[in-house]
Computed example of a mutant assay.
Amino acid sequence: MFNPMDFNARELMARDRVTEALCNGSPSLSKVLEKTRAPLLEFVQADSVALCLMRVGPSFDFRWHVPGPPIPILEEYAGVVEHDFLRAPILARPGVPICDTQLLSRGEYERTLIYQRSLELEPCLEHILAVLLPIRPGLVGALAFYRHERSPFSSQSITALSSLTRHMAGTLGTCHDYHDLTARTQVLQESYQRKDSAFLVLEPPTHEVSRSSHATALLERWFTPSDFHASGLPRVLKEQLDALIRMDADSRVGKNLWVINHPDGYRTCRFVELPAGDGPRQWALLLSELPHSIPLPLDMQRALTPRELDIARGVLRNWSNGQIADELNISGQTVKAHVRNLFDKLGVDGRADFLYQAAHLNRPV
């Protein structure tokens, strides 16, 4: 959780540069990393940074992205991955930064293959700080910071990184979505071909740039004529969009999805700020209708424990924590803890986002 009192003025300025680059940058992962590299290193007080995208489904796969000068040991990571002492701890605690000094003594660290090999290849990884960023079920990012001099990461560096993890995870998710959009025109394909999905592109405050073929019919089914603003957008969606535009980067996290429970199913709108171009900033509103009975996708099942699977199925039935507790004969606090853990594992912001992501994974592309 971000607390401005944890940082001095110089650190806050560096953090603002990071969040600005994350929220208003390109949807290209490589460009985001290049743009955030310098302020990130200043804010976390590190010498280099790298991101490892990992698929943790049936078969483990990874790819390193290194902005700035290369880090040779990462180019042969496949040969040392089984000796990566940080991998299991960060996988077990998504969103929690962990550094070498929390796990090993200096002597133990210097005997690791990671350290020994980096000493041979240079630059030497004298200290490592890493955090796991959930992106989508089965896909995570490991963000690693390195110091090349023998000066351990401080608690302030850990606090700094903790304050950015949700921003980083959200940006990685956006980059992943746009990669899919570019490669397969996923969102547009669904919106044009399905009567239960649509999109609008707006240029705030009121100018509509475009809408897909089913958008008008979908909105007229969802709302009565008196629900619409003079701009042609339903008031409830316009109010949420206006609020998002006014928010700073920290306040927006987890608030870009509108969901209402209707007898016919869930009605959702995801607000996506489009990459900055030469003209005014634009937003896409992605509209979908989801059935009440949503099966738990296989990719999500693989990431959860048996008890978390029971809890997840209850959430997909739109049960409250109390109803889930009664059904499973456990306490409400236990349900609350399980819900928080499974949301962290799956990289979702809450119940609404969980429903949206589960329905999205169940749809063929």
Rank of each mutant, 00 (worst) to 15 (best):
P205G: 03
M1P: 09
L287V: 10
S154A: 05
L218R: 02
V259G: 07
S331A: 08
K31D: 14
E122R: 14
R252C: 07
H207G: 00
W222D: 09
E108D: 12
E42I: 02
D180T: 09
R340W: 05
P123K: 10
H176M: 14
E190G: 12
D47T: 07
L290E: 07
V81K: 11
L200P: 01
L298S: 04
A144G: 10
R340F: 12
F62T: 06
D278T: 12
T268E: 07
R166W: 11
M13L: 14
V80W: 05
Q357C: 14
E110L: 13
Q116G: 04
I135R: 05
A359K: 00
P72G: 01
D353K: 06
T165M: 04
D250C: 04
R270E: 13
N321F: 09
L290H: 08
L290W: 02
H65F: 15
A50G: 04
S320K: 02
P152A: 03
S226K: 11
M1H: 11
H148M: 05
M247P: 02
T101F: 10
A358W: 05
V80I: 14
L53F: 01
L233H: 03
T174W: 12
Q189N: 13
T159L: 15
A359L: 07
A249I: 06
C52L: 13
R194W: 09
L219S: 00
V335Q: 00
V131A: 10
F85P: 04
G25Y: 01
V187W: 06
D196E: 14
V96Y: 01
M168V: 11
R37W: 03
W283E: 02
Y77Q: 05
N256V: 13
D242E: 11
R270F: 07
I330F: 09
E76N: 13
R117N: 02
L274H: 06
L133A: 02
A352C: 12
L361C: 08
D16I: 06
R302K: 11
A352D: 14
F354L: 07
E82Y: 10
V315N: 01
A284M: 15
S59M: 14
G138M: 01
D349C: 14
R211I: 11
R267A: 03
M247N: 03
A142H: 06
R270N: 07
R150F: 11
K345V: 08
R15C: 00
D326K: 08
N256S: 15
A21T: 07
A230G: 09
Y146S: 05
L181H: 13
I158T: 03
P364M: 11
S251V: 13
H167A: 07
L164P: 01
E110Q: 15
T268N: 08
H65P: 04
L328I: 03
R235L: 14
A284W: 08
P295N: 01
H65K: 04
Q186M: 10
I294V: 11
Y178H: 12
A358R: 00
T224K: 15
L125G: 00
N362H: 04
L33D: 08
Q323S: 08
P225G: 05
G173S: 11
A325V: 00
D349T: 15
Q156D: 15
G79T: 02
C124T: 15
S154H: 06
S163G: 03
L103G: 10
S231L: 00
